[in-house]
Design a protein around this nucleic acid. Sequence first.
DNA 1: GTATTATTTGCGCAATTAGTTAAATAGTCA
DNA 2: TGACTATTTAACTAATTGCGCAAATAATAC
Lengths: 114, 114
Amino acid sequence: MEGLPDEALKQIAAYFQALSEPTRLQILNLLREKERNVGELAQLCGYTSANISRHLTLLTQHGLVARESRGNSAYYRIADASVYQLCDLVCGNIARQHDRAVKGRAMFVGTGAV
Amino acid sequence: MEGLPDEALKQIAAYFQALSEPTRLQILNLLREKERNVGELAQLCGYTSANISRHLTLLTQHGLVARESRGNSAYYRIADASVYQLCDLVCGNIARQHDRAVKGRAMFVGTGAV
DNA sequence: GTATTATTTGCGCAATTAGTTAAATAGTCA
DNA sequence: TGACTATTTAACTAATTGCGCAAATAATAC
């Protein structure tokens, strides 16, 4: 990621943006177990099928999930398992961030400053 | 990332969102080389200092960069180098995605379908 | 103190986005 | 064919966001 041109930055940003929405992460999380159709995902997420369908379209466009039409349903499955690696990394970063925050506040405990 | 609660998904999404903006990625890219102050970053990015300052605040809140006040300037540096790992992973995924797209289209080359 | 420079913040605007409902499309079955 | 179900798309709303301008804040120098 040294001297990346504008266009590359845009694409990377767009990829991150696909992952920047709790509902989409929930979908990816549910698909971790097994493939599911739109209706199932909608019910599990607690949103309308229309909404979930659009999220799935976006995830498909970024190559994160794959669509397979079977009967009159559309089944989606994970297409790029490395998403979970990304999430693991992020979880680690968030955890470290929390640790730092806690340790930072610990310095003031009992001083009346907090 | 198995049975993540809603709150965790929100935090992960927020972290990805911090990385979902080309200008912020450009900032991180520039800070890869060395620390810089707000004015420098603003000039290099081609935006106002106000705008860059806000991006830096957000990046700081997520623990991605660290701020150090020196003189009457504010110097920022990378606080969590694992961002670059994330970006490398994403770059790989995008590249694979492109490969697939190219190979997919290749099937139709010369058929008049494309 | 004032002047100067750097950064941050308040405000408004334009563009984007997640969500809804309703209509359009696609597939199955009688 | 028509009825039924599942998915996608259109249209709309409310909320968010990136940006610039201008004012406020902070730090240095005189």
